[in-house]
Design a binder for these strands. Structure first.
Lengths: 107, 107
DNA sequence: ATTTAATATTGCAATATTACGATAAAGATA
DNA sequence: TATCTTTATCGTAATATTGCAATATTAAAT
């Protein structure tokens, strides 16, 4: 097929997978880290910093936006992207919960 | 293109993205959670539990194996899969480090 | 040695992702 | 208005992922 059978999985599993998919590209990890390290809202140098073409960066930013990790102004010249901290912490908790949930009795 | 330009990113970013890619499918999240909740090493019922065909499950398990998250016996009949706890904690730390690293001065 | 039960591999079709050139749109400035 | 700068969108090619039927492999049991 090629399409994931999301309907057979729980909302929690689908949510985590959906978010992980956004982190599943080094450009998006790099973009997130870069934005999170800026003092304020800066973005018009992402193309130079990351090293991908402008349309590609725009697409990656869109993926990040879609899971609610960015807030700010998005259209036209001189944007102002920054991390949506509430959402960031939400995802942090999701991953923490996933990783904390492991049984120790094993081979 | 279609292929990620991994060579332009740092090893840390590539590593996190690589691991996130494994978590970027609900079946693999469900498989990991299921295995981690078993008392010991159990796996021959994954096909029933998850609800995908046996070759598909086998492929997903292989993806998980490739990042070192599983240990045990792998070939033939009556396998014994379980979570590689050291590796699990390593990934937990990687994600924790990534999510902890965020600046608060923003819009 | 055959059968049985469980997992792995192969091959392929359907779909998704990645990347970028070309172009459009939005807004500032001359 | 015209131009410049910056980001968004469109179109498309290359590659990757997902899923399963068919088949192979592995090892235990009979």
């Amino acid at each position: 097929m090629g399409a994931s059978k999301t309907h057979i999985f729980s909302p929690v599993h689908n949510e985590l997978a959906h978010v992980a998919k956004v982190l599943a590209h080094p450009a998006r990890v790099a973009i997130l880290e870069y934005i999170s390290k800026q003092d304020g809202c800066i973005c018009n140098d992402l193309v130079d910093v990351i090293g991908l073409a402008q349309p590609t960066i725009s697409q990656h930013l869109n993926e990040i936006k879609k899971i609610g990790l960015l807030k700010g102004t998005f259209e036209g010249k001189n944007l102002c992207y920054c991390i949506n901290q509430e959402r960031w912490e939400e995802l942090q908790h999701s991953f923490h919960a996933f990783f904390s949930n492991i049984n120790r009795n094993c081979c």
